[in-house]
Design a protein around this nucleic acid. Structure first.
Lengths: 197, 197
DNA sequence: GTCTATAGCGCGATAGAC
DNA sequence: GTCTATCGCGCTATAGAC
């Protein structure tokens, strides 16, 4: 493996901590003081990297949407069936709930709930995540229809919106009560309903 | 109708405003100052009715869960088919998104996102809402299976969890991007997938 | 039950030294 | 790039008069 630098990029470390805190506590329950405590620098140093909270969360959203896109691309371009791709996509949501990941929510799901606390740019980025996710899901469903693993759909985009809704809501509900096993069950049932045969 | 009192119960008016603010902005974006401004009394007077924010939100949750139960009972005890009951239940979620209702979210959906900001009692009340909702949905699905309007389900409780997830997530996603028409479409598709035939 | 006044704290943000 | 120090504000909550 590559040599490890003694200190990795501070900006990235701040975003890492911010993402974790927002996914668990929400944007309005997270402060620059929390960031500075977790990263190990002073509050003013956080402000050196991100002039304001809006700037910080928008940078985080840019990174998150780009990262998510990359992961989804690796699923989309695999040789698996459409149904398997859809299952893997859903698995990304189930994973965040697992114990080792601190029972986190979806970053954009959390920020969608707190959307009135975002500026215009942040809101647009959350909307972009939603639209891209619906697009990705729609492509996987079409692949599944074509390879025979999923049932015919008269409105693929509408079905994709339903799948994203179930994933975001499943995360929200199961994190509060039910846990990862419940979410896995919900996802399994959803995929079953969309399956061929 | 009954005579109107010049000033209705202040406690109830505070809860009305709190519910509206939390459904739109979230718990952590709402302050006692916001409440006092909207109700037209001073901040200290709000504290006279509710000693702390936790006490206030828990009282709100008690009222909300009870109100929701009443509305659901009126749906459950009607002579409609199970499918129609389920549609009406889903309609409660679609309604909150409509323009006249200020594009609100579900109170317990919002508080589920911010669950780490609740005390033990508040968290338990949100969980109670989720469990009761799953219970209500399950009863409607069973009614629908028995009267032939909905398809047979091998795990009614699991399906009910999926329906609640889709409703909560549909509200979250559509409020952020898509609007009430998208949510209505998602709900229609969900009911269609569960229908007989 | 509502008010004025204030305590005590944490927040986002800035200035300026090193 | 990190630090100390501070500003100005809003927050939850309380004390005590009317």
């Amino acid at each position: 493996m590559s040599e490890r630098r003694p200190t990795i990029d501070t900006k990235a470390r701040i975003l890492d901590v911010a993402q974790d805190l927002i996914q668990r506590h929400g944007l309005n329950a997270m402060s620059f003081q929390d960031l500075s405590d977790a990263v190990g620098i002073r509050k003013a140093s956080v402000h050196h990297h991100f002039a304001s909270k809006d700037v910080m969360v928008n940078a985080l959203l840019e990174r998150y949407v780009a990262d998510f896109d990359k992961v989804v691309q690796s699923i989309s371009t695999s040789r698996a069936s459409g149904k398997t791709k859809l299952k893997r996509f859903c698995g990304l949501f189930v994973e965040t709930l697992e114990a080792g990941k601190h029972e986190k929510s979806c970053l954009c799901g959390m920020l969608a709930a707190e959307m009135l606390s975002l500026d215009d740019e942040g809101l647009e980025l959350v909307r972009r995540f939603m639209r891209r996710s619906v697009g990705h899901i729609g492509e996987m469903i079409e692949a599944g229809v074509n390879d025979g693993s999923l049932a015919e759909q008269n409105d693929v985009a509408g079905t994709a919106e339903m799948v994203l809704s179930t994933l975001e809501g499943g995360l929200l509900v199961a994190r509060c009560d039910g846990g990862p096993k419940q979410l896995a069950g919900v996802v399994g049932r959803l995929v079953m309903l969309l399956s061929a045969g």
